[in-house]
Amino acid sequence: MSHDQPVFILVRPQMGENIGAAARAMLNFGLDRMRLVAPRDGWPNPRAVAMASGAAGRVLDRAGVFADVPAAIGDCDFVFATTARSRELTKPIYTPESAMDHARALIGQGARVGVLFGPERTGLENDDVSRANAIITVPVNPEFPSLNLAQAVLLTGYEWIRPQAAQPAIDPGLAGADIASRLEVEKLGDHFEQRLEAAGFFFPPAKAPNMKLNLRNMWSRMPFTRADVQTLHGMLRQITRNHRP
């Protein structure tokens, strides 16, 4: 087992398609250590391979198969159990985010970390959860707390990779577009003022300064690209041209 990432352990998974979908979710976030505990339909499973689709097949190729949970977690130093149900077991409860933070800290110290995911219909049994050090619970709608297997894997995998990706919450690049400079936006504002002034928009004169201030403030809030600015200049020129006496 690799020490640089947690191992995801699917306990008694029922459908090959869900195992394949879980493999895809794992590889989306750079995880490729999967273990299977007593898969219902045996192993290997062609439906899992079909759902894994391409590169994620390597996750299935490396997956270990175990008869029971104790065997699957035997070399782990710390184990999380994912469950949405309340149980009469006293254990620390983590969100996926805090759990993966803790997993990173443990792995940084050389520990082996495992995460248990239960079967699709029933989730983990109390006997499974009792063998874990802590519980992961997703804060979902209490009236419908059920997540399917691949969703649970996806959420946990995302929280594992998220701090490492170090992406801004909002992409200021607007998908690679060339952003307009403040000078270009300022000149666009000048152009609008000129055209609006000529059209008699700033009336009465006493209110004109505040109206212009509000317009400048509006331009500053908008994330213009250079293409946006050029388009608006062209629109103003065309409108003026078509309305000349």
Rank of each mutant, 00 (worst) to 15 (best):
T90H: 08
K91H: 10
F29Y: 08
T240V: 14
M100D: 05
K207G: 10
P44W: 11
G110H: 08
A99N: 02
I93F: 11
R241P: 15
N28I: 03
P39S: 04
A166C: 06
G64H: 08
M26H: 02
L215P: 11
A180H: 04
W43N: 04
A166L: 03
D128W: 04
G16A: 09
Q5A: 15
L149I: 14
N28F: 02
W160E: 02
L10K: 03
N133H: 15
R47S: 05
M218A: 15
M15S: 10
T90P: 01
G173L: 01
I161Y: 00
V49Q: 13
G57R: 08
G74Q: 11
I239G: 12
A198Q: 15
K91S: 03
S130F: 02
M222F: 15
P205S: 04
N133M: 05
D77Q: 09
G118D: 10
D61H: 15
I93Y: 06
A48S: 09
G74Y: 13
D32C: 03
P46A: 04
T156I: 10
V115C: 06
M34A: 04
I107K: 07
L215W: 12
Q167M: 12
L124N: 05
A177E: 14
V49W: 15
D171I: 01
M26D: 00
R12T: 13
K187V: 05
G20W: 04
E186W: 12
F29M: 07
D190Y: 05
G42Y: 07
A198L: 10
G200I: 12
A63P: 09
L183F: 07
F144Y: 14
S181K: 01
H243E: 14
V11L: 06
G157A: 11
D4M: 13
L196E: 03
N141F: 10
N133A: 12
I107P: 06
F8D: 03
P205W: 00
Q151A: 13
I19C: 03
I136E: 06
P209T: 11
P223K: 07
E88G: 13
N141H: 02
S220Q: 15
M26T: 07
L183C: 00
T82G: 13
F224S: 07
T95E: 00
A199S: 11
T82W: 03
P6F: 07
K212S: 10
N141Y: 00
R221P: 06
G20P: 08
A199Q: 10
F203I: 09
M51F: 05
A175Q: 00
D228C: 12
R35I: 02
